[in-house]
């Protein structure tokens, strides 16, 4: 009897000591997140609410209203432009994927000593401001004599977007493929699968988290882009981002601009949710979300 009491006392003592120790070490680890938390309150959360406020109020009276969204549903122009933006983003994403996946495969499987240099070659452009890069590609396109009329204007814009966002596709793919256990592809070949069968039955399914990350990181910024279509295209290539930009540039358009931004935000949120569903339960490395 006595013994057991003693034991609890000792255990209590131990727990207390541990507690004291933890406090003596000072702050909890979560405290390190406070600086960023403050920053995000000021620059993300509060502005979001301001945007919400503008989206649901009248520009003149300041009263609550859904009228700002009517602009989008009335007539075809705005929704048509959103559709065009989605399509352009989709095409850009697919092209980026088709270019990046074989490259990532090659980079991750080579025993090249110069692998680092090669990777840097593709990552380096990321470090230069995207606006500068866009102006640079404009010059390249004019040297290549790509016309600025008709369908060709879309080629210009999509080339610009592919060039700008390619590293965002390559990085997650490269990271998931180079982290993949080599013995899995060997096991597949050992069991009788040709290299091509192995690619489709093992490598591709296992790189899904990387693919989803890459797709999100290219698709989302391309849907809302406006600088690239502005610099490389003309009024035909106006994207949803351009329209929002236009509304915000006029003094009375903030409410409608906010409403359009809200629509875009919902779209992006839905995309992320879908992506999360796809990657659910997949624990391989390389996924960013």
């Amino acid at each position: 009897m006595n013994d057991s009491v003693n034991v609890t006392a000792v255990a209590d003592d131990g727990a207390r000591k541990k507690d004291v120790k933890r406090k003596m070490r000072g702050i909890k680890r979560s405290a390190f997140a406070f600086p960023y938390l403050a920053l995000s309150v000021i620059f993300v959360i509060v502005p979001l609410f301001i945007m919400l406020y503008y989206a649901f109020t009248d520009s003149v009276t300041g009263a609550f209203t859904f009228d700002n969204f009517k602009r989008f549903t009335d007539g075809w122009s705005a929704s048509l432009i959103l559709g065009k933006s989605l399509l352009a983003a989709l095409v850009t994403t697919v092209i980026c994927f088709l270019l990046a996946y074989p490259l990532a495969l090659a980079l991750s499987s080579t025993a090249l000593n110069k692998k680092f240099v090669l990777v840097m070659l593709f990552i380096l452009p990321m470090w230069i401001n995207s606006l500068l890069r866009t102006y640079a590609i404009k010059i390249v396109l004019s040297i290549l004599n790509v016309p600025e009329t008709g369908f060709a204007i879309w080629i210009r814009v999509i080339m610009g977007m592919v060039y700008d966002f390619f590293p965002f596709m390559l990085l997650p793919l490269y990271s998931v493929l180079s982290g993949m256990d080599r013995s899995l592809t060997e096991a597949s070949q050992d069991l009788g699968a040709s290299p091509v069968q192995t690619l489709f039955k093992v490598t591709l399914p296992l790189s899904v988290p990387g693919i989803v990350s890459g797709v999100l990181m290219v698709f989302m910024p391309t849907v809302s882009t406006f600088a690239i279509s502005d610099i490389l295209g003309n009024t035909d290539t106006y994207m949803f981002g351009n329209i929002i930009n236009q509304w915000f540039n006029s003094s009375s358009g903030w409410n409608i601009g906010s409403a359009y931004s809200f629509i875009l935000l919902i779209l992006i949120a839905v995309t992320v949710l879908i992506a999360n569903l796809i990657t659910k339960g997949k624990t391989e490395t390389g996924g960013i979300l």
Partner: peptide
């Protein structure tokens, strides 16, 4: 002869089971 055409199978050191 490449591995997929050999009538030989391997049990790998860390099993290499397909996780998906």
């Amino acid at each position: 002869v490449p591995p997929h055409l050999r009538p030989i199978n391997t049990v790998f050191q860390k099993y290499a089971l397909f996780p998906h």
